[in-house]
Design a protein around this nucleic acid. Structure first.
Lengths: 166, 166
DNA sequence: TGACATTAGTTTCGTGGTAAACTAATTTTC
DNA sequence: GAAAATTAGTTTACCACGAAACTAATGTCA
């Protein structure tokens, strides 16, 4: 009884709860694995962290942006954005210029150095992704993206009315 | 020039790097959304955190287990397991008994109270998952799980030889 | 049996995260 | 046009995490 492999009784007919088959758990584990694996590349070679990489990629694609715009595009809280930007300013990867029309906002862009770094990391990131995706064919990749789209939309919908936006 | 929406030139023929289409980013965002949404349920109603829920689910399915076994089953670092167990012991959710054969290991199981909590949360977690999965049909859910399986296996394989196991 | 290595688990240390308070600028309202 | 509300962004306070150091028990090998 003390070594019962299924110690908590389940109502008749129900299978026990399995963490391994539970999607939030699976997504968390997988996301963490991906982050770690990829981060190894840009952390070791370029000395930047995950949020720094996100900001770099965001401003590499579109700029100039305000801090708030960076946050919404990269799904980062404003405090995290603020600290990340401070580090990147120190490192000379971005520059910041106060908006003449509205002195609260400052407009951000990559410096030459930031652009160079982005140009060097982006292909490595793509290559890493391609290596991971070798176990999937093109159609599967497409379907995966499509499933992720729908799940994300669903999650945003589920909390509708409950609290604030994102 | 300063308002160029694609400020970093891409090599001819290549599309610019899009964070929104990059899988590690997408998985992180989605995993975080799921965690938050689900955690709202068990945090508000039962006052436990994500790692506590993981340990609860792990020991709810199989016990007794040592701390190390809990960690490997729930994909948690041993330090995190240790802290989580300490909190749960305080809260009277689990009990710990030193193994007579090996005084380094202690064997863990849910208390009556822990079992009750698990029995109450598990169906809520299932229901939450089912609600999220309403946008997918049964075949899609199955294919999603299968894709996740393969990606996870791939990631474990990619770092083969590079460093330690998990 | 006594040194050395290994293992289970805890604790420490530094870092980074979030929520909430805060500052400063701007907009709204009457 | 002053008071109140809103917004952009920073800072503070607190807490969690991971890596590494540490403790204690066990295993190994001469």
């Amino acid at each position: 009884m003390s070594s019962d492999p299924n110690p908590v009784e389940t109502p008749a007919g129900e299978s026990p709860f399995e963490l391994d088959h539970f999607l939030p758990y699976r997504f968390n584990v997988l996301a963490e694995c991906m982050s770690r694996s990829l981060a190894r590349i840009y952390q070791e070679q370029f000395g930047i962290s995950v949020p720094e990489w996100r900001v770099l990629a965001t401003l590499g694609r579109e700029s100039p942006l305000s801090a708030g715009e960076v946050g919404s595009r990269a799904h980062m809280e404003k405090a995290r954005v603020s600290r990340t930007l401070a580090r990147m300013l120190d490192a000379g990867l971005i520059n910041r210029q106060v908006d003449a029309r509205d002195n609260r906002v400052a407009v951000l862009a990559l410096t030459r150095r930031g652009q160079d770094m982005f140009r060097r990391i982006a292909p490595l990131a793509r290559a890493w992704e391609a290596e991971m995706l070798q176990v999937l064919d093109a159609g599967e990749v497409e379907r995966l993206h499509e499933l992720l789209d729908r799940l994300l939309a669903r999650l945003r919908g589920m909390r509708a009315g409950s609290d604030d936006a994102d």
